[in-house]
Simulated assay, not measured.
Amino acid sequence: MQIKFSRWLVSLIIVGGLFLGGCTSPEVSSQTSENSSTTTPVSVTQANNPQMNNLPRLEGNATVVMVVNGSPITIEIDGNNAPITGGNFVDLVERGFYNGLTFHRVVKSPEPFVAQGGDPQGTGMGGFVDPETKRPRNVPLEIKLKGQDQPSYGKAVGRQAGYSDPQVLLNHKKGAIAMARSQAPDSASSQFYFALSDIDFLDGDYAVFGYVTEGMDVVEGIKQGDKIESAKVTKGAENLKK
């Protein structure tokens, strides 16, 4: 009982932290009530979202090395299964956007949960503003279910949306890297988080786009306020299509 209560408490704490602000959209509210008894998410077709036409795509994998507290963290970005989310992250890395930004939210108690960063304001409310258009860049919620040929966009299919057993391909196992967002599904921008433990109750509600392959001990040592000293694409840069 204590373990279940602790995990429930942690989920409440962190889900609030992953939100970037904003009100619950009618779409999210209706999904929750409509799907509350669903055991397996229905397959959702890819939305015809004009927003996606101008977003970077990662057509294949890429490797990013992030340096925190003087030590490297190697991250494998999965552009095969998360091309838009992965492309957005790799593009921001190549721009040098993350260099010098802090981890503004780190939750390790009562259980290891996430280390969240990527906000240029350092407040948990900011995101990337394209210097060319002067407009914020947002990426749609991108989830690929097992058995799907392509990811689905713009619709949460996890427990927060009322599904009890989301069969996602990229799950929130320890070492996953995923995008933070507001309650609006298509509101992710630059904020990301590392999963400090297996947190599968976020599967289908937040987009995982890669995994730490080396340096998990460095991730586990991140403290609130620690800075990203640098982030560089070391392999697969040619897979980024703008």
Rank of each mutant, 00 (worst) to 15 (best):
D130E: 08
Y153P: 01
G87E: 02
N171W: 00
L169A: 10
T102G: 02
N69W: 00
Y163C: 10
N53C: 01
Q121M: 10
E59P: 00
N54K: 15
M66G: 13
D119E: 11
K155A: 04
V107L: 14
K108A: 10
L92N: 13
F97Y: 15
V107G: 05
L169E: 06
D91H: 14
S152L: 09
P72M: 10
G87K: 08
D165E: 14
L92C: 13
N54F: 10
E111H: 11
G117F: 06
R57S: 10
R159N: 08
F103A: 10
L92A: 14
R95F: 07
A178Y: 01
F89R: 07
L141K: 10
G79Y: 04
K174D: 00
K155Q: 11
I84N: 02
S71Q: 15
Q183F: 12
A156F: 00
N80R: 10
L145Q: 15
N54H: 14
Q183K: 13
T133A: 07
S164I: 00
G96R: 14
V107M: 13
P83C: 07
T123S: 15
F103D: 08
A115C: 07
T74V: 14
K108P: 09
L55N: 03
G126F: 04
P83M: 06
L169V: 03
Q160H: 07
S182M: 03
V68Y: 03
P112A: 09
K155S: 07
P140S: 07
N81I: 01
K174I: 05
G122T: 03
K173H: 02
